[in-house]
Structure formats: C-alpha cells, structure tokens
Write a protein that binds this DNA or RNA. Structure first.
Ligand SMILES: [Zn+2]
Ligand SMILES: [Zn+2]
Ligand SMILES: [Zn+2]
Ligand SMILES: [Zn+2]
Lengths: 208, 208
DNA sequence: TTGTAAATGTTATAACATAACATTATACCA
DNA sequence: TGGTATAATGTTATGTTATAACATTTACAA
C-alpha cells in the first residue's frame, strides 16, 4: 500500500466521516426510510407497518439495537419513544431489570418476539439492515440502494456509535489472503471495536 | 486417503495449509495441550483439570464447538481420562445425561454450564482459544505461545473446518482503512465463510 | 496450622432466537 | 365481485447461549 498523500483532488469516494454527535440525524433516518421504500418498490417487496416501525427503530441512532430492545420500544408505544440511552456497548446493561421476556410472549405487549425477528429477517434479506454478530444487534445499512454488499463495521466501545465501512482495499487484501489458501469466500464478517474520533477528541487525524 | 505427495518444496513463505482431512490430528491436539501447559506455566496460571478437559474437547478437531456441546461431552465422560491426582470425590451422580439443560443445572450431570463458561473464559484470557462470534462456538488457537494477537478465521460452511489466519497484509489494510477515519482499534473480529480447499477439490491452486 | 485467594459448585435467570401452527390481510384472476 | 392462493402476522411454546449471585471447596503459602 502506498502512502496516503492527502491530495486535493476529489478523485476517490467522498470522505465517509464517522457519524458526529450533533449531526442532523432526523435527516439520516428520513433518507433511509425513503430509500427503503424505493428499494422495496423496486424489488416488489412490501414494507409493511411493522417492518417500517422496526426499521425506524433501528434508524433512531447510529448505535446498533437489539431485537428485544426493538420489541420493547414497539410495545411501549412505537413512535414517540423517549431518546433512551444506549444500553449496549457500555460496560453494563444499566437500568431497571427488564421484564420477563416469557411473560411478554404470553400477554402484556402488542407484539411477540417473532414479529420483530421476522421484520428483521425481511429487512436483512432486502439489504436494509445489517446484523452485528459481536453485539447481537442490528443497524441500518449505510449504502441503501446498492447491491447486497460485504460490509465492515467500526464499533465505538465507548459511545456505541457504529459506522459502516466499504473499503475496496480491505476487500482486496482479504480476498488475496484467502485465495492464497485455496479458500473461496461466500460471506465475510468484519467488526472492528475501538474508540471513535468523537470519543477521542485529541486523536491524530490524517491532516488534510 | 489419496496420498498426494507434496511434490515441490515450497519456495516462498510457507503457506499455512488449511487443515487436511487425513492429517495426524492427534499430534495437533497433543502439541496444543503441551504448549498450553507451557503458556500457563509461564504466565503463572493453572491449567486445572476441568480447564484441560475443555481445552481437549475444543481441540478434538478443527471444527469450532459450542459451549453446551462441550458441556455434554464432559458430562458424558467425553474425555474418559482417569481423574488423576484429583482427590476430590467427583460427586458421583451417575445417570444418563438429560436433554433438558435446565434439568442439568439441577441434577443429573456432573457439571453445570457455568463450569464450562468459566473454563472458556480462562482459556480465552490466556490466549489458548478463540471465540467465533458468527457461530457462537470456540476453537483452539493456532498460534499458541505468541502474544495475544488479532486473528482472522476462515470457516468452511460445508465441513465446518476452520483455519486461523494471521495475515500481516490484511492487518495493514485494516489498520489503514480504519485510521483514515480517525478510529482507534481495540479489537477486531474477522470471520470469513466459504468453501475450503478440501471441500472443493478442483479448485484453482496457485500452481508454481 | 491457618488464613486467604482461587477455583469450583449450585441455583436461578437473563438474553437471544426459532419451531410450529392458527389467523388475517393482500393480491390477483375468473 | 367473489374466490382463492399467497403473504403477512398472531400466538404459543421452546430452544440456545450466556451471566448473576452466593456457597463451598481447594490450593498455597505465611
Ligand atoms: Zn445520523
Ligand atoms: Zn464513540
Ligand atoms: Zn489437526
Ligand atoms: Zn470444508
């Protein structure tokens, strides 16, 4: 790999900045929902009410969200949820002891876990969300409308914010290292944990 | 077992071959156990009986194994190893292993899940095994004795055989792609699914 | 010996996910 | 429009993976 010289030319892809704390996230979500509609229309699949609700919940932030947390939000009244704190990626699952999930399945909420998992499956099948195996959680796809793609993720262990990376160089390196061993890739899972630029203000930036 | 003579001597970097079906795996396991002893001795940690049993179970093949499968094998007398030097009466409740895991915790097996998870935690902390997040399963570390390292895994979806890769080039590419975004890596998770050379005999080899 | 830290035992439950079948909604055609 | 096939959702139950909390035993050495 050559040295990265910060050339002024805007040749390559635009700088995919890590999601910043103050950004207009309502716009992220609105755009994502809009594109999701388009994707489903193009594919002839139906973005039903519950699927849309789950997708909205996933897009409430750039922090991955677990299936049962989605369920809780749906059952707590769906749309006008309070800006609840991230419960993942922090050391503890702070907060009051969650309700008994078995009780929820019986009666008490409007939806059972199956409803959420089915919606998540649909959204993944249609390339609208990704699952993060290291967290057992889900996040909206940052490259909607593109073909199903292998993605990499950067997960901040402090704030939980997760960015989707689509590095061609990384994919090349991966492909080469693997092919050398006679292996044929079907799927890849790349999840990088660490500290994001927002959580380490005095980080060394590639000065531009 | 078609004896494929290793015709040419490898010239360049020794290709860390994917584990072959007919290889002398008893040797893999024996070596791993031996090195594990050394590692623990060097670190001043104790490779106790149950930890050794779990490590042996993990090393029974190159296919990752789940915690509850390890538990079942332990409780089935899996490693029929004489309990040497352990005066602790093994609370000998004989009896057939139940299917129900909850029953196991109560009574019926010799160990509860906690015992296995604790052993797994110890083995991971000491760099003796890795956890595969995409499978919720565990595999012996292929680079024992080296410092705690970031590893990548190639997982055959047909035979389950999993190889540990330690590609410097891949790590470089990863590091660059991540650093460009101002991210600092703590941990990495790279799990590649696909077909291994043993399961695709007519693959194109880098014939030299 | 005896105190202490490490290890293990024990019980309970949390957290994540799927199987199986019933019911309702939707689309599409006659 | 009505019928019917399919998709979607509801419902109940259970499977699978992992951890919390506290009791007891063991190893080790002062
Ligand atoms: Zn945003
Ligand atoms: Zn952060
Ligand atoms: Zn082997
Ligand atoms: Zn294979």
């Amino acid at each position: 790999m050559t040295e990265r010289t910060p050339s002024r030319r805007t040749t390559a892809t635009a700088p995919p900045a890590f999601p910043k704390p103050g950004h207009n996230h309502a716009r992220c979500a609105a755009e994502a929902l809009g594109k999701a509609e388009a994707v489903c229309a193009a594919r002839g699949t139906r973005l039903t009410e519950i699927r849309r609700q789950v997708l909205e919940t996933v897009w409430q932030s750039h922090v991955p969200v677990g299936a049962y947390e989605i369920l809780a939000q749906l059952n707590a009244g769906g749309g006008d949820r309070p800006p609840s704190q991230n419960s993942r990626a922090l050391t503890a699952r702070g907060g009051p002891p969650s309700q008994n999930s078995r009780a929820l399945t019986a009666r008490g909420g409007r939806h059972a876990p199956m409803a959420v998992y089915r919606a998540l499956e649909f959204l993944m099948d249609n390339g609208l969300i990704h699952r993060l195996a290291s967290l057992n959680a889900y996040i909206g796809c940052a490259h909607l409308g593109e073909d199903p793609h292998a993605a990499q993720f950067l997960i901040c262990r402090r704030c939980g914010t997760t960015a989707e990376l689509k590095s061609a160089a990384l994919n090349r390196a991966l492909d080469q290292a693997v092919t050398e061993r006679g292996f044929t890739i079907d799927s890849q899972l790349v999840e990088i944990g660490g500290i994001c630029p927002n959580c380490r203000p005095n980080h060394r930036r590639p000065k531009s």
